[in-house]
Design a protein around this nucleic acid. Structure first.
Lengths: 243, 243
DNA sequence: CGGACACTTGAATTCAGTCAATTCGCGTGG
DNA sequence: CCACGCGAATTGACTGAATTCAAGTGTCCG
């Protein structure tokens, strides 16, 4: 756990102005509700790239909303490898368990500077008691995460390396687009070839080979902390072979 | 949808006597509660091996508890392949969505004769209103399913074919054991090599090769609708390389 | 006993991993 | 501004794992 100290009040984002509000636990809540829920926020803080929000096996007595930045959720294996389960963006709700005494079964690491909003076990319980809508939203979030995991599982199990890469990138691009980014431009992309490789279950060397191929084919250029889509249609077609 | 007609009252299992009660949506409910919830059951029926409970893209206005039998959840791909997401046993809760107008994103097929208990959209809503414990259980079920999906994703992404097979089989054996089966005996196993292969993302030919290898190494014998564990310790060690 | 389906095996091929050596991009400090 | 150093990206040669295609054999069930 390497959270930086809680931000002073004047630097905190109010829920009404939070950019993640449309994607987060509070989706569908009105301004009135947002204002009342805000009292149950425990802390806002920054966490630098490379640091853990929490590690597999820990039992953080809180859940977190990622307000801004990139984070990865992953599992580590006995042989030193890791499987990246998902890439989290603004609005993603991380670390929730009904029973907070149960350890988390995956780690979360910041890939860029992240702004985090914390809710303690106690406050979450009170929020859930206070509003049936929040329970509904929670179940809905779980459903979406489960569906995403099923989709991931399917293309990792069945697709070729090239399709996996295309699918993985498209997924991220769509998420970014939903958050208002122009994906026809060159975009900051704080994942290395190795990170992408660990997400789709191939080696970084092979990832590189295919990345070169995709670049030379004029489809997508992804390296050195940047991604530039060269032909969205082709990229999309590659990914869509799967479903 | 190939559900057989609803069973006549005298052939229906009461919730108190249902073998799946400890694993299902009603876990932690007392006998009193079970009795009152029973009124919200819509139908019990059988479904034969090879038939669908529901197909990807359908919008069944119900959720189902698998009381008995083997079923698989899977996604189909454009290229004719499929990814088996999970194998379901007695007590597993299938097809639930908060919003039943949303199509399911995977199919469920019976692999042996299955006894199914149906709950309609309307009755589920009333049950959830009636008891906070059921909401809690629902969230808990979702959490467990999500954790299982993460685990599956991890070993499919990172393990060798031999480890994948070992892990897959151990998982099933542990589930069976929790349901009271003696896994040191020869066990009915209604999955073909091809089914297992589709679950772990390899071809049936390769599955067969590794299966022969495992058998000759005196670890496990899995073919022709049977599985016989020859050396649980070795099988377990193979699987445990992953985590 | 015959047919269907599952399982098995071999040979050739392809895809992806391993190892090792450069090269590239970028930030740091002289 | 340039040299240096570091991590990331790239490349080649080789190895190994898994797929493909094709031809069996085995097992179950009617």
């Amino acid at each position: 756990m390497s959270l930086l100290p809680k931000l002073p009040a004047e630097q905190q984002l109010s829920c009404e102005n939070c950019s993640s509000q449309r994607h987060a636990w509070f989706e569908k809540c009105n301004q009135q509700q947002l204002k009342s829920f805000q009292l149950y926020r425990n802390a806002q803080c920054f966490i630098e790239a490379g640091n853990y929000l929490f590690m597999e096996g820990e039992t953080p007595r809180a859940a977190y909303t990622l307000q801004d930045g990139w984070a990865i959720c992953f599992k580590s294996l006995a042989n030193g490898r890791r499987q990246i389960l998902s890439v989290a963006f603004s609005g993603d709700y991380l670390g929730y368990r009904t029973d907070m005494s149960v350890p988390v079964d995956y780690s979360v690491m910041a890939m860029s500077t992240c702004r985090i909003c914390t809710f303690s076990e106690k406050n979450i319980r009170q929020l859930l008691l206070k509003s049936p809508l929040l329970i509904e939203n929670l179940i809905h979030i779980q459903e979406k995460q489960a569906a995403a995991c099923r989709t991931r599982l399917t293309y990792i199990g069945q697709a070729s390396a090239k399709q996996k890469i295309a699918f993985f990138l498209i997924n991220i691009l769509e998420k970014l687009e939903r958050r208002g980014m122009d994906i026809s431009q060159d975009i900051d992309f704080p994942l290395t070839h190795e990170d992408v490789a660990d997400a789709i279950g191939i080696t970084s060397v092979h990832m590189c080979r295919v990345a070169v191929e995709l670049r030379k084919a004029g489809i997508v250029d992804c390296r050195h902390n940047h991604i530039q889509v060269l032909d969205f249609e082709k990229l999309s077609r590659l990914a869509r072979v799967v479903f």
